[in-house]
Structure formats: C-alpha cells, structure tokens
C-alpha cells in the first residue's frame, strides 16, 4: 500500500493569504497609487486647491509606490519569506516568477500614470 508521504512529502506549507498577496503585490500597489493619485488630485481640484498641490499629491503617490515596488523587486527573497513562502528549494518557482513579472509590469504602469503630471495642467477641464 503506498503511503501518504509518497504523494505529499512532509514540507512547510505556504500561507494561503500570504501567497495570494505575494503574487498580487505589484497590482495591489498599483491600485493604491491609482486611487491616491486620481482621488487626491480630483479632490484638490474640486475643492479649489492650487494646481501645484494636486501635482505634489500625484508625485508623492507615484514616488512612494515606485519605491515600494523597486524594493520588492530587489529584495524579493526576503519579501517571499515575509509573505509566508517556504525557503528554497521548497519554494514554488513559478509563483516567484509570476510575482516578479507582475511587480515589474505594475512599476511600468505606476511610472506611466505618474508621468502625466508634468505634461498637463492639473485642474483645467479637458473639454
């Protein structure tokens, strides 16, 4: 009779929530940047604030989230541990790869969205 260990060798189990957050770290940070930049900028403009305040809000949100993403990409091993991923060689490498590419894609999106700040007047109506 085969044993359970043949199919499921004893090993540290990854955290469920941790794995999902680890994998989705990049897009979640992008969502934070998008919400802060769009919400903050709209609020400042709607309440009659100076346009430069709006620019500062967008730049701050962009810089903060970009730093977070860069840190994640540079110290991914440490981040993985913090999110409950087992140490190599028990780590699921495709999960690492997906998290890394998503973080990189999100970094591009953060810069892409934030780059608009220097190009346009913040509070002038588009039409």
């Amino acid at each position: 009779m085969p044993k359970r260990n043949t199919f499921f060798p004893p090993a540290p189990k990854p955290s469920t929530t941790g794995t999902l957050v680890y994998m989705l770290f990049g897009p979640l940070v992008w969502a934070v940047q998008f919400t802060l930049a769009y919400g903050g900028h709209t609020l400042v403009c709607a309440r009659g604030g100076a346009p430069w305040i709006s620019d500062v809000v967008v730049l701050a949100a962009t810089a903060l989230t970009a730093v977070l993403l860069v840190c994640f990409l540079v110290w991914q091993e440490r981040c993985a541990g913090a999110f409950g991923q087992p140490a190599p060689p028990r780590r699921d490498r495709p999960t690492d790869g997906i998290a890394r590419i998503l973080a990189f894609l999100s970094l591009v999106a953060v810069f892409w969205g934030g780059a608009t700040v220097g190009l346009l007047d913040a509070c002038v109506l588009g039409r």
Partner: peptide, 29 residues
C-alpha cells in the same frame, strides 16, 4: 491578473467628453 487589475483603472475613458480635469483624462488614457 494584470488585465484584471488594470481594467479597473479605465472606466473614465467612457466619460472623456463629460468635462473632467485634463490630468484625470491623462491617468485614464
């Protein structure tokens, strides 16, 4: 996953002509 997330940042592109600040238009564009 990327499409799933980014698709939530596009909704205002259906409202470009409704009178929205330029910078907002740029985010959604």
């Amino acid at each position: 996953i990327g499409t799933g997330f980014f698709s939530f940042g596009l909704w205002v592109h259906h409202m470009f002509t409704t009178g929205i600040p330029s910078l907002s238009l740029a985010f959604f564009s």
